[in-house]
């Protein structure tokens, strides 16, 4: 999995591509922790390039969401689609995370 970050409208946009599983989840967690330590607590995660998410990936999302919540920050997911969306639906994650159709919509919602 590749993780790229950029700043847009006072918000950090994280783009993840490839597979989000037990192997790559620690990288994601580490990255988000760094952002939080650096004071970036408004985060949008762009799922457009993500092919697969495993239960370990879901756990990674939970861990980072919990950390953000403790710091008073928020996270929104954009472009969750395909098999990733199915996993979100089946596991009930779709009901606890805020998801938008596009990055722009997430940015607008978070502002």
């Amino acid at each position: 999995m590749e993780i790229q970050t950029r700043n847009e409208a006072n918000t950090t946009v994280i783009t993840i591509t490839g597979r989000f599983d037990a192997v790559t989840a620690p990288d994601y967690e580490k990255k988000v922790q760094e952002l939080i330590v650096g004071g970036d607590i408004r985060i949008v995660v762009d799922f457009a390039g993500l092919d697969y998410i495993s239960s370990a990936g879901l756990r990674g999302l939970l861990v980072t969401a919990k950390l953000l919540k403790a710091k008073g920050g928020q996270v929104r997911f954009a472009n969750v689609a395909g098999t990733v969306k199915e996993v979100f639906d089946i596991s009930g994650f779709g009901t606890i995370f805020q998801m938008d159709a596009t990055v722009a919509a997430s940015l607008a919602a978070i502002a």
């Binding site: 879901l58 596991s91 009901t95």
Partner: peptide
């Protein structure tokens, strides 16, 4: 209905 996974959130 999917329901949320067991463990992360106490009041599911």
């Amino acid at each position: 209905k999917s329901g949320f996974v067991l463990g992360p959130m106490a009041d599911t």
